[in-house]
């Protein structure tokens, strides 16, 4: 699915742990316009659950959660309109 959407911004937060994974995700989301898409790359396993949950909690749409070729988590999220 991530191949089909247009990514407006990418955020690499490998090495970050909760809650900073979401803090940095939130700051990146604030720089986007409504409807734009952010790709987040992270390697802290609990964040693969927490970040999508928190994003949904703020009304954004999580389009995809998957692992990439480096075994990192990739979250694709669209900013709420």
């Amino acid at each position: 699915m991530s191949d089909q959407v247009n990514i407006d911004k990418e955020l690499n937060i490998k090495g970050e742990v909760c809650p900073y994974t979401f803090v940095k995700t939130k700051l990146a989301m604030e720089t986007l316009s409504p409807g734009q898409v952010l790709k987040i790359i992270l390697d802290h396993d609990p964040a693969s659950v927490n970040v999508p949950k928190s994003l949904r909690g703020e009304g954004h749409e999580v389009l995809d959660l998957s692992k990439n070729e480096n075994d990192d988590w990739v979250i694709i999220v669209q900013k709420k309109r």
Partner: peptide, 22 residues
């Protein structure tokens, strides 16, 4: 502009939907 220290210091504010980085 937020530095790494700012992000840590104010993280509990930034996490609040009513506050955020803005």
């Amino acid at each position: 502009e937020f530095t790494e220290d700012h992000i840590k210091r104010y993280s509990r504010h930034i996490l609040l939907p009513e506050v955020g980085g803005i």
